[in-house]
């Protein structure tokens, strides 16, 4: 048991993560070709506009459901809405935001773009603290669009083209289908003025996505409404990101590697549940923490992966001296 635990705590999670992300990417983007169907309540951006999707982003069905007229929504049809939602929750409750760090195809794409930037030897950028504090609110506005726009359609306040308003501006709609050779989403819809504005915004956001995630790690995740939605339910999830403040020296090593620039991960020594709304549960912080058990990932209060001095030294290659060739 101790051997297994040591093995996990010393593991190079970067490699583990890379392969897991690739696996999920194939599963979600090409799953359809292999008759994989994980339903349409997947709690990440596994885009429904991809013809071969192996499990669909929950937002697409959700928007369609919410766009029904109010009396339909509150009638027997509500059962299907409820089932969709419960399935979403069940998926989410187990893995928490680790869906983002390990399974989301759009998240994975951003990590690949980051990889490209690193190869080119270009440094990443960060937000200043005030920028961070302002920008982080945007994801809640996005979530409001996901929920309120279709409801507005249902209540007859908005035109039909608002039905999937968020999807229209979601960069995933244009980018994900490219992986199965489908470029049909790369067009502007001139049918109505609203449609034109929304699809134009979509194009702009797609451009921003590509440029943004080149310079900023996980650029889009910071604004992602799914992330906001996750946070509402994350307290009930089984997988947890925990901190033992007594053991933390506030050294900031975790903050230094955090793609999402979450300051609390280092500075908050009071909370035990340290998962924040921006977090993508990538566990990089746990891997980069040099204090024994200061940060850990728990499932049902059992430590699954915990920070150790030994694991840190191993991952940073500080547990031995590199042999000199000369």
């Amino acid at each position: 048991m101790k051997r297994i635990r040591d093995f996990i705590n010393n593991a190079d999670i970067r490699r583990f993560r890379f392969w897991l992300q690739l696996l999920f990417f194939v599963l979600f983007i090409y799953g359809g070709y292999f008759a994989v169907n994980l339903g349409n309540s997947i709690p990440v951006f596994s885009c429904g506009y991809d013809k071969a999707v192996g499990g669909m982003c929950y937002f697409l069905p959700l928007q369609h459901q919410l766009a029904r007229p109010l009396d339909v929504l509150l009638s027997a049809a509500s059962i299907s809405v409820l089932i969709g939602f419960v399935t979403f929750l069940l998926w989410f409750i187990v893995f928490n935001k680790a869906w983002c760090g390990y399974a989301c195809p759009l998240g994975t794409m951003q990590d690949w773009i980051t990889g490209l930037r690193k190869k080119m030897g270009i440094r990443y950028s960060t937000y200043t603290q005030p920028q961070f504090d302002t920008l982080k609110k945007i994801k809640y506005i996005m979530l409001a669009i996901v929920i309120l726009a279709p409801m507005g359609v249902g209540m007859g306040l908005l035109g039909g083209e608002w039905r999937t308003a968020f999807c229209e501006i979601c960069p995933s709609r244009m980018i994900t289908p490219l992986f199965v050779g489908d470029v049909s989403q790369w067009s502007l819809d001139f049918s109505t003025k609203t449609a034109m504005i929304l699809t134009t915004l979509g194009l702009i956001f797609t451009g921003l996505f590509l440029i943004g995630s080149f310079f900023k790690k996980r650029f889009f995740c910071f604004f992602c409404p799914m992330s906001a939605m996750h946070y509402i339910f994350s307290d009930g999830a089984l997988l947890k990101l925990k901190k033992d403040g007594d053991k933390c020296t506030k050294c900031g090593d975790c903050y230094n590697v955090c793609d999402m620039q979450i300051k609390d991960i280092a500075d908050d020594v009071k909370s035990t549940n340290i998962l924040r709304d921006d977090c993508i549960f990538c566990m990089k912080c746990v891997a980069a923490c040099p204090e024994d058990d200061a940060l850990h990932v728990d499932i049902l209060n059992m430590k699954l992966f915990t920070s150790t001095k030994g694991g840190f030294a191993k991952r940073m290659e500080m547990d031995r001296l590199e042999k000199k060739d000369d």
Partner: peptide, 13 residues
Amino acid sequence: NDMVSVDEWFVND
């Protein structure tokens, strides 16, 4: 006690 952790090994980082 406190160790250096680096995410991307560029000089500035």
